[in-house]
């Protein structure tokens, strides 16, 4: 697929139900429980967030680390992310239609979508709560530098920011830049410093990791 800035042409999505029957049942039960005051939605979110790394195969960090150490794998990943990720030994319905975006000194990629159904959770685990919020999505498009600043991320003036709108068919994995000072790390060690936020593109990586940064591996 040709590289392009984010597109609003999503007509093709209508062939697919946005929610499966099981998702509908969960959503229905949850919304009724919330309205009856039997469940606190914020407490539910906080609880679910503790399982962010426990959903799906979550091999994104391993994929990024391999791309850093193996140029052939990186070329494959950039050409056909679905197949390259699959070579990690998992079959993921939602992880298959993937495009990998490489951050460089000149361009920084960032991914948005309001729904977890459009988030590559087999690769990344659960989306963070803020990722689904309307303000994040709106600002990611109108003020990407502001959103990055909220995450403590500042890019050099000349760096172009590309915002990619994830769709039901096409999901993105950002390959963050490998931080300096990691030459001695093994592939496994490298996977340990790759964060979920970096693979969404709201964070750059540093080594040693910034305090308070949670890794996904």
């Amino acid at each position: 697929m040709a590289e392009h800035d984010h597109s609003h042409d999503h007509a093709h999505d209508h062939d697919h139900p946005r929610l499966s029957e099981l998702q509908l049942r969960v959503k229905s039960l949850e919304s009724l429980l919330v309205e009856k005051g039997l469940v606190d939605p914020a407490a539910l979110d906080v609880f679910i967030d503790t399982y962010e790394t426990k959903v799906g195969p979550r091999n994104g960090a391993g994929v990024v680390a391999k791309a850093w150490v193996d140029p052939d794998f990186k070329r494959w990943l950039l050409r056909d992310a679905g197949a390259a990720i699959k070579s990690f030994g998992f079959e993921g319905r939602q992880g298959e239609h993937m495009v990998a975006l490489e951050n460089t000194d000149r361009v920084h990629h960032m991914v948005v979508c309001t729904l977890c159904s459009c988030y590559p959770w087999p690769v990344l685990g659960l989306p963070p709560v803020w990722y689904k919020s309307a303000p994040y999505r709106a600002r990611a498009i109108s003020d990407p530098r502001g959103v990055l600043a909220d995450f403590g991320t500042t890019l050099a003036d000349g760096v172009e920011i590309k915002v990619w709108d994830s769709t039901a068919e096409l999901r993105y994995l950002v390959i963050p830049q490998r931080p300096a000072g990691t030459e001695h790390l093994s592939e496994e060690g490298l996977a340990g410093i790759v964060t979920r936020n970096a693979m969404i593109g709201v964070e750059t990586l540093s080594y040693p990791p910034k305090p308070g940064v949670e890794t996904v591996a």
Binding site: L22, V26, L44, I48, Y51, V55, G56, C116
Partner: peptide, 12 residues
């Protein structure tokens, strides 16, 4: 969890 909805059902 295999899918996000499973984690939601678990949490509830």
């Amino acid at each position: 969890f295999r899918e996000p909805w499973e984690a939601q059902a678990f949490a509830m």
